[in-house]
Amino acid sequence: MAIVVDTDVLETDPEGYLVRIEDWSPDVAEAMALADGCELTDAHWQVIDFLRGYYAEYGFAPAVRILTRAVARRLGPDKGNSRYLYRLFPDGPARQACRYAGLPKPTGCI
C-alpha cells in the first residue's frame, strides 16, 4: 500500500498509516485528509502538531487525556474534551489524527 504526495510514493500499511515516520510532511496530512473528504483547518493542525511534538519527546502518541489537557490549556476548557476532538476527527483522535500526523496506529484494547 502507498500514498502519493506530489510525485513521491510513500509506503503505508494496509490501514493507511505511514510505514516510515520520516516520510511525513504537512502535505502527507493534507493528502490523507483529502482522500477522506476532509479539509484540515487550524484546529486540526493544532492537534496534529501537538501529537508530533509529544511523539518526538516520548516515542509514543499522547494518551487522550494528555491531549485534551493540552487542548484545554491552549484553547479553553470548552474544547478540552474528547467530544471536541471527535468533532475534528470523527474516526477518533487516536486513529485518525495519528494517521494524519504520520504516527503509528496505537494498538490494544482501544
Binding site: Y58, F60, A63, I66, T107, G108
Partner: peptide, 13 residues
C-alpha cells in the same frame, strides 16, 4: 504492554 507505551510516556501520563 499492548499499546507499546514506553515507561517515560506512562510516567508522564
Amino acid at each position: 504492554n499492548n499499546l507499546g507505551m514506553p515507561g517515560p510516556a506512562l510516567a508522564d501520563t
